[in-house]
Simulated scan of single mutants.
Amino acid sequence: MSKRAKLGLTAIILSLGLVGIQLIDLEGRYQAIGLLAGLAYGLSAWALFEDLKKIEWLTVLILPTLYPVATALFYFLLPSRLLSQIVILLVFGIGMYALLLTENIFSVAAIRTIQLLRAAHAVGFLITLAVAFFLWGTLFSFRLAPWWNALGVLITSFPLNLQAIWSVNLEEKISESVWVNSLVLSWILGGLGLMISFWPVTVTVASLFLVTGLYVGLGLIQNQLAGKLFRKTTEEYLRVGGLVLIITFFLSHWQ
């Protein structure tokens, strides 16, 4: 079986798994999502096996594992209308296939130069933001105490940061700068999660606020590691962050 066929089959099986989870009683859905995570890792590893080397068994497979999990969790928050479910299923399947192609490019590019690397970075960045939005939307929907929200954001953001920052230079080992940048950004996002927990905002607004923080943080770090962090680039990212902060403030239901 060709690699593209394996990637397509993996996307189809995980899409069917996503549908199957919706048919399970609410009490058993979280256990089923845990099984889906294991299935996603195993199938993704099988599909990408030929080019996976050393640390890539971790870095390359983080997003293909978290994407189905985040989508399944976020699925609970959506209306139970058939049309909505079909749309989400189609978007997930296409996104999963695109993500696997992206991770395949990363694993190949770590060995030799490949022209599609820039496009892969863009797709990986976009899906990282989507996964973060799904995870944090689910987290804030539980209406937990602020400190638990902060801890949840910190923990869930770390693997997302790690794989995104590592993908810039695709090193054989995770360098100290990747570890440090990932941890620092996770702490910052955790702090933002704590702050926004005290603001009277909706779950969607809180999630978008945090995703913007991730967008700004990852954008600055990735450009810095790539040697492209110029003054204009920095100002553009900070301008986006400042604008979203202002919008979030005015969307808050202050009394």
Results as ranks from 00 to 15, higher is better:
L116T: 14
I62L: 09
L139P: 06
G242K: 07
Q222S: 09
L154N: 10
P64Y: 15
K232T: 06
K6R: 15
T204G: 11
V201F: 10
A122K: 11
G190I: 05
F134D: 02
S182N: 00
N149S: 01
A5R: 14
S182V: 02
E56I: 14
L14W: 07
L89Q: 02
L170C: 13
W57K: 14
Y75D: 13
S80L: 12
V180L: 09
V19A: 04
F209C: 03
Y41A: 08
A32Y: 03
L77H: 09
F198G: 15
I221V: 12
G95W: 02
W57C: 15
L99Q: 06
A32G: 00
F158D: 08
N104E: 13
I86H: 07
L61H: 14
I155C: 06
E171Q: 06
G17I: 12
G152S: 10
Q163F: 08
H253I: 05
W179C: 05
L117K: 12
L9N: 04
F142A: 05
L73D: 15
P68H: 11
E236G: 11
T65H: 01
L14E: 11
P64W: 13
L52M: 12
W148Y: 15
T202I: 00
W147K: 02
V203D: 00
V19N: 02
V91E: 01
T10K: 15
H121R: 14
I62N: 06
L63Q: 11
T128D: 11
A164H: 01
L26D: 01
M195T: 01
L126Q: 01
L225H: 11
F125S: 02
I88N: 08
W147N: 15
I55L: 09
F133Y: 13
I155V: 11
F230N: 15
V87C: 02
L245A: 07
Y75F: 13
K228I: 09
T138E: 06
W187R: 02
I155M: 04
F158K: 06
F140Q: 06
T202S: 02
L7G: 06
S2F: 00
T138I: 01
T248S: 07
L144A: 06
T128L: 06
T71S: 15
L9S: 08
L82M: 02
G38M: 03
I94M: 03
S175A: 08
R231E: 05
V244T: 04
L210A: 01
L162E: 04
L83C: 01
L23W: 13
L251P: 00
V203M: 08
L185H: 01
E176N: 07
V153D: 08
E27W: 10
S182Q: 00
L23G: 08
L220F: 15
I155W: 05
M96K: 05
A72G: 08
W136L: 07
F49W: 14
M96I: 05
L208S: 03
L82Q: 00
A5V: 10
T156N: 08
W57Q: 14
F106T: 00
A109E: 13
S197Y: 09
L78P: 10
T10C: 15
I196Y: 03
L14V: 09
G93I: 12
G137S: 14
